[in-house]
């Protein structure tokens, strides 16, 4: 294969100031992390509320949450992103619309669109995990809580959710990792996150193998690192004497 490997490419100047190509990757990684974390906060909060709604005795709340989940799960992420980026701003009140389109830095408005999009998209998945976790608990748990006189919000806050979250740490971890991977769609609306920077480096230097290899390694390491963190979290919150919660 006629290909000139050159791993020093990352330390070469990009021709812009004193910047080297590695700086692009670092900036990209920064965007990727910022995007993923803020989207995850939205997903976790909204997803928990929706998941609880799906287990409530009332028909209406459960149905509303189901509609949400089906809607956000059955439309591709990229279509959702286009809708948030190209359409929703036009629906805003004129002042906010102008502010969003003209006053904000393009990167900022793209960032907001992706964060909201990814957060709401992932919330549907988190919802299903939370629901599964709650439903995996023996029915006697909520009965016992009610029998003691606890009210519904207390039953969820003090008894059901703390147990459900412990059960679903592994699937939640993989949803969290999915957020990182999915955040790469931001490159398609011009946000210079990790993948976009990789592509740009590949195009500028023609060292595409090196550029993509580095990106792959970064994603891989990020993935493994987060997995380790979540495993520590899981161990930290593990309840003594309990092997499989809700395993009855």
């Amino acid at each position: 294969m006629n290909y000139n490997w050159d791993w020093s490419v990352f330390f070469k100047s990009t021709g812009i100031g004193s910047e080297i190509y590695l700086d692009w990757f670092i900036a990209g990684l920064g965007w990727t992390i910022a995007l993923s974390l803020s989207a995850w906060v939205i997903a976790l909060l909204l997803g928990t509320v929706l998941g609880v709604m799906r287990t409530l005795p009332g028909r209406f709340a459960a149905r509303a949450a189901t509609v949400y989940v089906e809607l956000f799960r059955n439309v591709p992420l990229l279509v959702q992103l286009f809708i948030w980026y190209f359409i929703v701003p036009d629906w805003l009140p004129e002042k906010i619309e102008l502010w969003f389109k003209q006053d904000l830095h393009p990167a900022t408005s793209a960032f907001i669109s992706v964060t909201v999009c990814l957060g709401l998209f992932t919330a549907a998945r988190v919802c299903e995990q939370v629901r599964t976790g709650i439903q995996a608990l023996p029915r006697g748990q909520s009965m016992a809580a009610y029998a003691l006189g606890l009210r519904l919000p207390q039953v969820y806050r003090k008894v059901l959710l703390p147990q459900a979250f412990r059960i679903i740490i592994p699937p939640l971890t993989s949803e969290f990792l999915n957020v990182f991977k999915n955040s790469s769609v931001a490159s398609l609306i011009g946000l210079m996150e990790l993948l976009a920077q990789t592509k740009q480096t590949a195009e500028f230097t023609a060292n595409l193998f090196e550029a993509f290899t580095l990106a792959t390694v970064i994603y891989f390491v990020l993935n493994m690192g987060l997995m380790l963190v979540m495993r520590t979290v899981e161990k930290r919150v593990r309840v003594p004497g309990l092997i499989a919660l809700g395993g009855k």
């Binding site: 294969m1 290909y3 993948l195 990789t198 595409l208 993509f212 990106a215 792959t216 994603y219 493994m224």
Partner: peptide
């Protein structure tokens, strides 16, 4: 593990660049 830890979009983009290379090779 490898493919599950990288974004699909990265794979699509990368393959777009390198598959012609590979096939040619």
């Amino acid at each position: 593990n490898y493919f599950r830890s990288i974004p699909l979009l990265l794979v699509i983009t990368w393959f777009y660049f390198i598959v012609p290379f590979m096939v040619g090779w």
